[in-house]
């Protein structure tokens, strides 16, 4: 199942139970799995056209009227394009708006550099009160949405909208605000988010064969970061890799480093986009180009391990 289908069907289920939930799109409903909602909820699911700034502030207005609006677009248009509307209409005004950005980082693939947000986490992380969540698979998305509706405040959901490998089974349970240790290890910690979680798990397996016992932590909520989990793991392993589908400036690497530098300084090596713009290509090609493959995680892990 594509993640957008998991998103669309879970939102539909929630809308049936909760009349406060609205879904607004800016002409990308067919890409984000939300178009079908309009048949069942013609009043609460609608398109505002290609006008993202207006969408953000309209959603803030709806929130002030007691609704829980979700707005959705591609990540660059759901974040950097409407940064001020998110900051003022939504966050500063304390409105309960959920922002869904799809195709983060290199996953925009053939849409290329204009549609690739390498900076969206950084942009939103510096706005007070924003919660930033990036699921690693469909199950996590499905379980996160009711928690996000229950949470009163602005949340950014960074959605890989296409087919993605399953990591978690139905018995999986997680807390939106707790980082998730998905593999125990003692030699190094790999903090990962989004599509880099699976890559990191695979890398950890290979590292095991080379005698390095890596711990893998899925940091699905990048803000507020679960500092306790970061500190606890780093105190044990004393070195880390941070793997993210984002610029190494402003994203998860920055968030982990900010915690580490104040509490448990360690060698931490980033795997991510190294402050360059995106370009067209398939996911695999772009992962190679931007050094975000399993091999890159392994190399970074060895380097960090050697430095401790």
């Amino acid at each position: 199942m594509m993640m957008r289908e998991a998103f669309g069907s879970t939102i539909a289920e929630l809308m049936r139970k909760d009349e406060r939930i609205c879904v607004l799109d800016a002409d990308l409903a067919n890409c984000n799995g939300t178009a079908g909602l309009r048949n069942e909820f013609p009043e609460r699911a609608f398109d505002v056209g290609i006008a993202e700034q207006n969408m953000a502030s309209v959603a803030a207005g709806l929130s002030s009227y007691g609704f829980v609006p979700f707005i959705s677009s591609f990540t660059p248009f759901a974040t950097r394009r409407i940064c001020d509307q998110i900051a003022i209409s939504i966050a500063y005004a304390k409105q309960n708006v959920k922002i869904v950005g799809s195709d983060p980082g290199i996953s925009a693939q053939l849409n290329g550099g204009t549609h690739m947000s390498m900076e969206d986490i950084g942009v939103l992380r510096s706005i007070p009160t924003m919660v930033i969540f990036e699921p690693a698979d469909n199950e996590q998305m499905i379980q996160a949405l009711p928690q996000i509706v229950d949470y009163n405040g602005p949340v950014y959901i960074r959605m890989f909208r296409k087919e993605c490998p399953d990591i978690f089974g139905k018995d999986y349970k997680f807390d939106l605000f707790k980082a998730d240790k998905i593999k125990e290890g003692k030699d190094i910690t790999i903090f990962a988010t989004g599509i880099m979680v699976k890559t990191s798990l695979d890398a950890a397996e290979k590292l095991k064969a080379e005698g390095i016992d890596a711990e893998v932590i899925n940091v699905h909520t990048i803000k507020p970061i679960d500092a306790e989990a970061v500190i606890e793991s780093l105190k044990k392993t004393k070195c880390a890799v941070v793997a993210e589908n984002h610029n190494v400036i402003g994203g998860l690497f920055s968030a982990v480093s900010e915690v580490a530098v104040q509490n448990c300084p360690a060698t931490i090596i980033p795997v991510g986009v190294k402050d360059v713009f995106g370009e067209v290509g398939k996911l695999g090609e772009l992962a190679e180009k931007f050094e975000m493959t399993e091999k890159d995680v392994i190399e970074a892990a060895k380097k960090a391990f050697a430095a401790k």
């Binding site: 609205c22 009043e43 609460r44 700034q53 207006n54 953000a56 502030s57 309209v58 959603a59 803030a60 207005g61 709806l62 929130s63 002030s64 009227y65 007691g66 609704f67 609006p69 001020d84 509307q85 900051a87 003022i88 209409s89 500063y92 005004a93």
Partner: peptide
């Protein structure tokens, strides 16, 4: 009824509020 100051935004918020009132 609404926070405003960054120009243009309050007007959109008002449209959202009016849509909300229509839904309710």
């Amino acid at each position: 009824d609404m926070t405003a100051g960054s120009l243009g935004q309050g007007f959109s918020c008002a449209v959202g509020i009016a849509i909300g009132s229509k839904i309710k």
